[in-house]
Design a protein around this nucleic acid. Structure first.
Lengths: 203, 203
DNA sequence: GTCAATCCGATACGATCACATCGAGAAACT
DNA sequence: AGTTTCTCGATGTGATCGTATCGGATTGAC
């Protein structure tokens, strides 16, 4: 009953991640509608039964993949920032986070394609929308805190609202990220625009 | 042969639009994956056979709905600008276009939900992507022209690149538009951010 | 070594889908 | 009036989907 599965725990999580990663690969290549149990099983190189065992419903499978995608993106960005977020200057951290939202290589392209797919589904899937809102709240809050720190240090005019400024910067980065994904803009152009927007925040 | 169907032409286009509008309604409510021939027929109040007659394949149906959605949005924005685009000041036109990209009432919410759905599909559907690229090219070009006009008039610093600036403003507006759609930001906040970004362009 | 929980492959089922086919009726041109 | 084209509802078909279920294999606890 209340007992926790202990022995196979490690294997369990590993298998779950394998399957979730297969979902992400399919989403990156052909979008969320292309995700089916048989597709996922084939991509992960396992039987459909196993997929069904770990994720009894498709809904759970999709949501697990969403969380997995978020974890991968967060890990990538955190690795870029370095182990000590307090050490670097707020502006440097802001620049890294914002530019990391722009796809500039195959890996980041995959990450942003996946994210874009889930943002679309959020419009019709409240479970995904709730997860996404929480995700945005955390991201915006983090950036707003950095802005506020540099406001206190006098490097950013105190007139700007930190929360709105943070939301604006992320919105710009994501809008440009989409342009890069569909080849409307180049990654370099997008990066320059984001960084110049950041520069304007700094007066 | 080369002959054009004349008599039933009017009815033909009218029926096509009815069906395309039904597709847009479904997309706005439950997303593109919810669009099926039977759903569309039921929503439009016609038989499935008629839908199939006017749109022999689902692909054509989706693409027609995409074009229809674009037409509706363009018409709405053009109506806001007024009949004489040369008369108004470039800045006023820029402000209208950018704020009209932000959902602020049920109608604009529907328009932007539909647009967001198609942008997601564009990642996996080259036909939609091509249409979207053309759409963006036109929009960005229009705004860049307005910016250039006010650069020539000395109202905007000549240092800024008109095309990149236009792309940045639209990207910001669309990123914020999505925040409004999933209730991350309010429409007022988004509007203010877009307008202040425009103000910064004007120095 | 025994036992129970977990794991997972195989199969079946009902629903839904896009699409094809057919044929009757309406309309338009000759 | 006759003929042809357009219109479109009805029905069938093959494929794919998500899910339920079952039975044996594996595993870890004791």
């Amino acid at each position: 009953m209340g007992r926790r599965a202990r022995g196979p725990g490690a294997q369990h999580e590993h298998r779950c991640r394998e399957i979730a990663d297969a979902v992400l690969e399919i989403v990156a290549e052909r979008g969320l509608p292309a995700v089916s149990l048989s597709e996922v099983a084939a991509r992960a190189g396992v039987s459909a039964g196993r997929v069904q065992h770990y994720f009894p419903s498709k809904k759970e499978l999709i949501e697990a993949a969403f969380d997995r995608g978020n974890d991968l993106s967060s890990a990538r960005i955190n690795a870029k920032i370095g182990q000590d977020p307090q050490a670097a200057s707020p502006r440097a951290v802001l620049a890294v986070v914002l530019t990391e939202l722009i796809p500039y290589d195959p890996t980041t392209r995959v990450h942003m394609r996946v994210r874009q797919s889930f943002t679309a589904r959020a419009l019709a899937d409240e479970a995904i929308a709730a997860r996404l809102r929480q995700d945005y709240a955390r991201l915006h809050q983090t950036l707003a805190l950095l802005i506020r720190r540099d406001q206190d240090a006098g490097r950013i005019p105190a007139t700007a609202d930190p929360d709105d400024t943070a939301a604006g910067l992320v919105a710009l980065a994501e809008g440009l990220a989409y342009y890069v994904l569909i080849d409307v803009s180049s990654a370099d152009t997008a990066r320059d625009l984001v960084l110049s927007a950041l520069a304007e925040v700094y007066g």
